[in-house]
Design a binder for these strands. Sequence first.
DNA 1: CGGCAGTTTGAGCACGATCAAGCACAGTGG
DNA 2: CCACTGTGCTTGATCGTGCTCAAACTGCCG
Lengths: 228, 228
Amino acid sequence: MTLSVTDIQALRRAYLFSGLDEAEFKAVAARATSVGLEAGQNLFFQDQPVTAFYWVAEGLIRLYRTSPQGDEKVIDLVGPGRFFAEAVLFMGGRYPVNALAQTPSRLIALDGPSFKAWLAEDANRCFRLLAGMSARMHKLVNEIDSLTLMKGTDRLLQYLLDHSDPDEQGRMVVDLEAPKQVIASRIGVKPETFSRLLHKLRDMGFVEILDNHLVIKDPEQLRQARID
Amino acid sequence: MTLSVTDIQALRRAYLFSGLDEAEFKAVAARATSVGLEAGQNLFFQDQPVTAFYWVAEGLIRLYRTSPQGDEKVIDLVGPGRFFAEAVLFMGGRYPVNALAQTPSRLIALDGPSFKAWLAEDANRCFRLLAGMSARMHKLVNEIDSLTLMKGTDRLLQYLLDHSDPDEQGRMVVDLEAPKQVIASRIGVKPETFSRLLHKLRDMGFVEILDNHLVIKDPEQLRQARID
DNA sequence: CGGCAGTTTGAGCACGATCAAGCACAGTGG
DNA sequence: CCACTGTGCTTGATCGTGCTCAAACTGCCG
């Protein structure tokens, strides 16, 4: 499917394509296709051959792995404006994770081989990609040491602080974009534990729970709490 | 310091430089310098500006982070033939980890800016780097889910299997290249726990402990044990 | 209404951390 | 040569976090 005008305008601002002139960008957009997914629909599975990578226009994509025992670990939740699976193009050629639409989503698919050809035309394009991958590696390294160095509560706090935005009244609000069990897996605890941790924070007066979003009472205080 | 002949020959086979012709490689080698480190000497610290990246000719480099509480987490142990910190060139420009010589080491330093200029000359060079980074990202992702999905014993087994090599008698041997506490941090447990786990494996008849190297009795059996 | 998925709550347990002590070994200095 | 010190590894006892198993509760959709 070809791209809508609004998608094209949004994609224009993605980090990989900023800095292109109009003609260059048109060449990219011409080769991109649009993919619609319903909630719960799988885009690709772990170990499948790589054909394309994606940019999220709308929705939320869950990247996860499954253990031999059937347990699931959510590696990342990818929201609008972000790329995923772009790193994998240069490896052996198999996706390292499963991808599933957490909510109804619209993606822009960029074909692997033709994207590589496009990259090869200009090293600056490669540099942008390298910078993006580098940033992602930093995030993974952070993830690793918070999994080893910090306890469940700390990781939850970190997650909340990372995902909080001010609402119209200036309060810091966290929108729990995915079901609680998915977020639990994302921060590396079981759903039961997640529930308990959240209620502990409420009882301590740090947050207020309103359905599927939270209000952080005093962000500064929370940041402190992470260290003790 | 300029490079020794043997270092140059070894560097020639590194993944980033394979596929270059003699003249091209010479241009690279001319800009590289040799760095010697004693055991325990720091090469760079977390959050320092990036000036160069490195290739290990000899020795073992420990990449680690420290938490505000002073705890240490070993992210990786980099041995001969591997690069490190090459990804970070393209980011903000600060090292995300500390680097320390675990044993007396000799490194080859490649200057950041001039390496970037060299990369820009040919997109294929970028592609090699991209592939290398991609591989490293896979490893990090694997790391993350083994930290969440598996228990200490499993991670130890995985580490042993990943680091075992056949000796002259055909037995699978693991050389504990770093002090046990460092390996413990690498697999994400405390030294005490590491010691106990290792002895448990010995008592179960899986391995034999000889000073600072282990003999794996039955590799196939171990691989099985990881799943139960 | 019943069935189902997601969430919460409770009770018990296991893994691994913490605190603390002991041991082996190497290096240092009297 | 022997105490003294420091370091790395081991062992023991205790404790806490978070998992497991199980049950109840919620909202939602057929």
